[in-house]
């Protein structure tokens, strides 16, 4: 099966082609993004530290992503825990609605929320509106990650804690929470990453303060600023790889703790 292996490597080249170019242009000493490269510079990274508007956008995005991660993980814990319980009326349609954003084009979520917030309630757009929308689209991902963690739990452990006199809440806090912690951390990281990179919804719902992708979108029309965008992209790639590696290690540790075999991937 040598042909298949060659194809796999060619495919990886296709997947990584744009990402390889990113650092090339970030360190390239030219205003335009094209070959041939002209020389090495760290100028664009220095520019990055001086650009106040960009820093504000980054700060904004970090606040939004962190709030989204926490909210969607908390709601995800509720839903994933509920999914392990016995049936109640309308369990499937309820779960279906919560998971619906997975199969809904993002622009639909964006415009429907825009209409409700602006035209119906007459509210202004702000970071809060983006957080609300991002939580909605991250929740299904959190649930998918947490479902695995909660389904791997041995119910006997909670029963034992209850028999030994713990209340439901303290049994949850002392027994269940530590066991599902790797799942919670993966859920936090995945929602954080999705929110940080989300553009379509943020573009519709951002108020006076743009998020980082919205700011980048604006820059893409001013070619002079593009190398700065490349520099920032490089930093982002490095950061996401670090975050993802942590998430992956956490997931593996969680599997090991639950005594399961590794079956691969986050999704």
């Amino acid at each position: 099966m040598r042909g298949l292996r060659i194809y796999a490597i060619a495919y990886l080249v296709f997947l990584y082609a744009p990402i390889f170019l990113l650092p090339l242009f970030a360190f390239n000493d030219a205003d335009i993004i094209a070959f041939p490269l002209s020389g090495f510079t760290t100028h664009w990274f220095e520019e990055l530290t001086r650009n106040a508007a960009l820093q504000a956008a980054v700060r904004n995005s970090l606040i939004i992503a962190a709030s989204t991660a926490v909210l969607s993980t908390i709601l995800g814990i509720c839903a994933a825990r509920a999914a392990t319980m016995a049936d109640w009326p309308l369990k499937r349609p309820m779960m279906g609605l919560i998971m619906l954003p997975l199969v809904l084009p993002e622009i639909i979520v964006a415009v429907s929320l825009l209409v409700v917030i602006v035209q119906v309630f007459g509210l202004g757009l702000s970071n809060a509106t983006i957080i609300a929308a991002h939580t909605l689209i991250c929740m299904p991902f959190s649930i998918a990650v947490l479902n695995g963690a909660f389904q791997n739990l041995d119910p006997a452990l909670e029963e034992a804690a209850l028999d030994l006199g713990e209340s439901r809440w303290s049994a949850f806090r002392l027994v269940i929470l530590p066991l599902v912690m790797p799942g919670i951390i993966s859920s936090l990281l995945i929602s954080f990453t999705i929110s940080l990179d989300e553009f379509i919804i943020a573009f519709f719902l951002s108020g006076a303060n743009p998020t980082m992708p919205v700011y980048i979108w604006g820059l893409l029309r001013f070619p002079g600023q593009l190398p700065v965008v490349m520099a920032m992209g490089t930093i982002l790639v490095a950061l996401s790889i670090i975050l993802l590696t942590i998430a992956e290690l956490m997931r593996r540790r969680g599997l090991k703790r639950a005594g399961l075999k590794d079956t691969g991937g986050f999704l």
Binding site: L75, G76, C78, A79, R81, A82, A83, M85, A86, D87, W88, P89, K91, M94, M95, L97, I98, L100, P101, I108, V109, V111, S112, L113, V115, V116, V120, A132, A133, T135, L136, M139, I143
Partner: peptide, 26 residues
């Protein structure tokens, strides 16, 4: 089942308010 219903309420209410209602509105 009862505990499940209680637990699902917050995420379900959230999806109802921010997804079902907006979709009905558009």
């Amino acid at each position: 089942g009862k505990r499940g219903l209680v637990l699902i309420s917050p995420p379900f209410a959230y999806a109802l308010l921010l997804l079902a209602v907006p979709l009905a509105t558009i």
